[in-house]
């Protein structure tokens, strides 16, 4: 097992969450293939894997592009459980999608039982600034409240697309290193996280 892990570059599992139509797939495809897909087709659940160089180290990123609309909560929970970091995407042109992030955040925290799970709040469609419904201040204040970074992206212009994925991977990597230090890489101890949670509370 250990041998295998050494052979394979580190794998970081990223989950794209957010309401339908905010551009999760567009961000993913832009990141994966440098292309912008105009026509919208609702995603069911797609997974991608790519080798990238993160700060000089070769790693693999596994992206799970989830459905904005998933009827079964249990299935959604399974998505979230499989992730190590989350890009919570909303569209700056649609307030509903911004409001929905609250719910996604709550679900993720419930499933992962971890306040400090690597998590980025992503305001997509920054190229459509003239249709903006969600102000920068609003989004920033919510990100602050959650203690997560807020980044605005455009899947169309590729603005900040790499940034959100790489930032998230860095977070995941540092979390893993942290965990390895404290737990010797075996067994998951949530006491530390719980402690943190208490601090925040």
């Amino acid at each position: 097992m250990a041998k295998k892990l050494n052979q394979q570059p580190a794998l970081h599992k990223v989950i794209m969450v957010g309401s339908g139509g905010v551009g999760k797939s567009a961000l993913t495809l832009q990141f994966m293939y440098d292309e912008f897909v105009e026509d919208y087709e609702p995603t069911k659940a797609d997974s991608y894997r790519k080798k990238v160089v993160l700060d000089g180290e070769e790693v693999q990123i596994d992206i799970l592009d989830t459905a904005g609309q998933e009827d079964y909560a249990a299935i959604r929970d399974n998505y979230f459980r499989s992730g190590e970091g989350f890009l919570c995407v909303f569209s700056i042109t649609e307030d509903d999608s911004f409001q929905a992030t609250q719910e996604f955040r709550e679900q993720i925290l419930r499933v992962k039982n971890d306040e400090n799970i690597p998590f980025l709040l992503v305001g997509n469609k920054s190229d459509l600034d003239e249709k903006r419904k969600v102000t920068l201040a609003e989004a920033n204040s919510r990100a602050q409240q959650w203690n997560v970074p807020y980044v605005e992206t455009s899947a169309k212009t590729r603005e900040n697309v790499d940034k959100v994925f790489y930032d998230l991977m860095r977070e995941i990597r540092s979390r893993k290193m942290e965990d390895n230090k404290t737990n010797n890489g075996r067994g998951r101890d949530k006491s530390k996280r719980k402690k943190l949670k208490c601090v925040i509370l």
């Binding site: 069911k44 797609d46 997974s47 991608y48 894997r49 249990a74 399974n78 998505y79 499989s82």
Partner: peptide
Amino acid sequence: YELGSLAVVNVRDLGGLGDSLFKLLAFPDT
């Protein structure tokens, strides 16, 4: 696996392994 809690994921790209893979996410299994 109960369909009501089984996440079926279409693997679009697994580093060049072709387009014939899919994943089942049923915690704790992947």
